[in-house]
Design a protein around this nucleic acid. Structure first.
Lengths: 210, 210
DNA sequence: ATATTTACTGAACGTTGTTCGGTAATTGAT
DNA sequence: ATCAATTACCGAACAACGTTCAGTAAATAT
């Protein structure tokens, strides 16, 4: 189909300009400073025109979050390939925390409210949806390699997926608390590495079945 | 001093009514539905009068959070004393997640924005501040018992405090992701217990010094 | 009983998200 | 090239928001 007519291309460009200026406003002045009028001002349109491209403000925030997920995925992969999967897994976690602290506005927007998740398709099982989420898959593959190398034991009830989920939960807790309750406290990546090593050690042997 | 004159008592009662109605509005219609005007309506005052008791809306939200911290602390202790500190520690974590899912609005309000933490005194070290936070202390004592019983090994760099912090981060990640990304997915407390057991196993032996 | 402090309100200001009627520009068909 | 139909855009407005302030009613202190 002609998804590249002049019109659709202009349309896409303006949509892009909208979320780009939104990202900049958020980055420089925080989420609370973001308003339709500020965006309209930044891209030389009237406030009403914004609604030709996005149905409402939440849709714009959702689009910003989508960008955030992509950036997070890239950040998780931004570590040189390592022979030892244990180190690779751990450093992936460090990257997660690093991303959160480097982009606090992005991160809090993505993971603070209950309605900011990508393609929340309630038809499908949550597991399948996560497995199609690129960011989660980066973690998943690290855990898979960990298991392959014999550093991590799986059971029928608690497989690669569950371990990957647990890893995500661990680093997410570190990141989230660092941004909220522990903000402006010292952030020691040496200690975070020790925490992640301890987490890994917990899965080094069979998870007790219940 | 006379902190119980008729005036101060009335004052306290009205302040209490304000945050009580705020809690109810949040609970029934979500944080986004909370407004000064709605509160004023609920307690039969004019919007302007609210400002005689709280300087602004954020102060009201902060007061709501304070209540939340107290409720969380109570929830963490709401598990019968157990002989085995390993079980006690794990069930404390389960209670944390339970609280989050039972009070999603409270929890997200408390731990979503960067400015909702209690008495953020930047003079003092973060460690000392946490050690005076009742909720954290519940976790801290569990870890202390765990160490006392020999189920958990401490090192100079990574002591009871760090382990307790790690425990908090772990359950916080579970809770937070369950409320946001994993919301409306199934929540299996059996699997959460297995996760917390694995976490505990990671600290069962010496944390490798770096 | 009077002076003074406190409690409370109505009305307003500036800002927000969003809608709508109307106009200018662009497109598709002849 | 011309004309009708669609699309893009805007000004103005609406309702709701947080907050302020001048002014009135009530409670307190003298």
């Amino acid at each position: 189909m002609d998804n590249t007519t002049p019109r659709t291309r202009r349309n896409a460009r303006i949509r892009q300009a909208i979320i780009k200026s939104a990202v900049e406003i958020i980055h420089h002045e925080g989420v609370s400073a973001l308003s339709i009028r500020r965006i309209a001002d930044a891209i030389d349109y009237s406030p009403a025109s914004i609604y030709e491209y996005y149905p409402n403000k939440d849709a714009i925030l959702a689009a910003v979050c989508l960008e955030g997920y992509a950036k997070l995925t890239a950040a998780l992969q931004d570590y040189p390939a390592t022979a030892d999967p244990r180190v690779a897994t751990r450093e992936c976690g460090v990257q997660y925390v690093r991303f959160a602290l480097a982009n606090p506005d992005y991160f809090l927007l993505m993971f603070s409210s209950a309605g900011m998740q990508p393609n929340h398709n309630s038809e499908e099982s949550l597991e399948l949806q996560l497995l199609r989420s690129p960011a989660f898959m980066v973690i998943y593959r690290h855990i898979h390699a960990l298991v392959e190398a014999g550093f991590c034991v799986v059971t029928p009830r608690y497989g690669v997926f569950q371990i990957a989920l647990s890893a995500w939960q661990m680093v997410h807790g570190i990141a989230m608390l660092s941004l909220t309750t522990l903000r402006d406290g010292p952030l020691d990546y040496t200690i975070i590495r020790m925490t992640l090593d301890a987490w890994q050690r917990g899965f080094a042997h069979t998870v007790a079945e219940r």
